[in-house]
Design a binder for these strands. Structure first.
Lengths: 261, 261
DNA sequence: CACCTTATTTGACTTAGGTCAATAAGTATT
DNA sequence: AATACTTATTGACCTAAGTCAAATAAGGTG
């Protein structure tokens, strides 16, 4: 809870061995094609790398930051996953998003310099912390960094619009199908299996995100399984009929763009 | 429908008289504090102004662009309002957002250079068109433009997160209350009345946006009126009890941040 | 002005999904 | 390993919201 405050970050970082650090540099990171260094030269990537903090892995329940904290920088998940949530006035946790490796966190805090959500780790997770003031200085030196940051912001806007589309679709089946397909395609673009993956979030967290009761999520999973659309065993999911799921959950921007009138 | 295609933009523009054009320049625009020129010098603002296209007003049903169109630039509403929507696979119109004066449209298309939604005008509306390639060139000359563009992108991400929070809140009352409060605060920050305004969108459009049936939206309006929370007559809305509405719809990021635990 | 079309409201009925409660299957703790 | 604790599933029941249908109101058009 308090373990990411103040100087602790530096102490975490110093625990990492030099060899491990080398493996984690931007230059050798497998997520580079999704991340900030897109289009940057070796030398530029090195400059970016030099401002990035890499802490020791976070553990389930740890927080990257909390709702209301002063904005320091953006985070990129390198492994694991996190949830972004806020506490509503009834004291309930409302989940606004999940982030997977290669995804940027904290972009919404740039404009007012305050994190509007808390971000907690769902499983053992590594993340890069990119101090924003330094990032901003670098952008004036490195045009492609500037460009890529803007593209990533734009992509985030796009993803959020898609999420709005999913949430406005009424049925529980549509929402869950869209959610699973979203995870699937995100895993795929990270060269992970698009058909078989582990849900790092609980049913309760999925329910909160999709705006349903836990029981509804659970029942919908069961129904999908009965219908042969997927196999589910607790956190382990295997999608058996992507097309049928897409038919259900196809109420999204991207899929509708392909079937554009 | 086809009236914004190709050279038509220029012919529209040329119809504007020189005096009218002067009134519409960025330098004298009342929306400047919300828009791109924030933090820019007089000379820089003039440069920005010179790349902006201002067309003759659009009329209800006109499109700024359509889903699938190649990305040309971003638009800023200067008066009136528009809806952003896509057509789902059942051929239904799904509304993803409404935009008011001072709000930027098309930010989600920067990253892949394709508009993912159609944007149609809800009432007589004026908009500035900012060609993106020229805007991008200007950003390298004008650091504060760069910065402001990023802030606006960040703000858009933030707004979208808020929308996700609203849509994940279950009840029709919560959603409609949040929607009305969102409009209210947006009007307020544009120095318009926060308590009394005109809905430029139809009940059907509100329903589509909030993911409800039209009848539900209509009934919820009626219930709010019975409870004395507002007065509504067709498009005309007068909020009578903002606090009570906020209690209902307070499931949002910003309001929860104030009542932060 | 009369007619037509479209938007909104309201009522009656139905259903998807919420709530409550019990059970089962994992996980963590001692 | 036994215990307690948490998470997920399933059933029974109920309510909010969807659907269908009709009435009303507003706007548009010849």
């Amino acid at each position: 809870m308090a373990d990411i405050k103040q100087g602790k970050i530096k102490s975490r970082e110093s625990q990492l061995s030099t060899t491990l650090k080398d493996q984690l540099r931007c230059q050798s990171c497998g997520l580079t094609p999704l991340c900030l260094p897109v289009g940057m030269s070796e030398a530029e990537t090195e400059k970016l790398d030099s401002i990035v903090h890499r802490n020791t892995p976070y553990h389930k329940g740890d927080h990257l930051f909390r709702q209301g904290d002063k904005f320091k920088g953006i985070y990129v998940i390198t492994s694991g996953s996190v949830k972004s949530y806020y506490i509503n006035k009834h004291g309930e946790e409302c989940i606004v998003g999940f982030y997977l490796p290669g995804e940027l966190i904290g972009l919404d805090a740039i404009h007012n310099r305050v994190y509007s959500c808390s971000v907690a780790v769902l499983e053992t997770t590594s993340a890069c912390e990119v101090p924003f003031s330094q990032l901003q200085s670098l952008t004036s030196e490195i045009p492609s960094l500037q460009h890529q940051l803007m593209c990533l912001l734009s992509k985030e806007v796009h993803n959020d619009c898609e999420m709005v589309a999913i949430l406005a679709s009424h049925s529980a089946e549509e929402r869950l199908a869209s959610f699973l397909l979203s995870l699937s395609s995100r895993y795929k673009s990270r060269s992970l299996s698009a058909l078989e993956f582990n849900l790092s979030m609980s049913r309760t967290e999925i329910a909160s995100f999709l705006g349903h009761a836990v029981e509804t999520v659970s029942r919908t999973f069961s129904r999908f399984q009965e219908q042969g659309l997927l196999e589910v065993n607790r956190k382990q999911v295997k999608l058996l009929n992507i097309e049928a799921l897409a038919d259900l959950g196809g109420n999204t921007l991207t899929s509708s763009t392909t079937g554009f009138p």
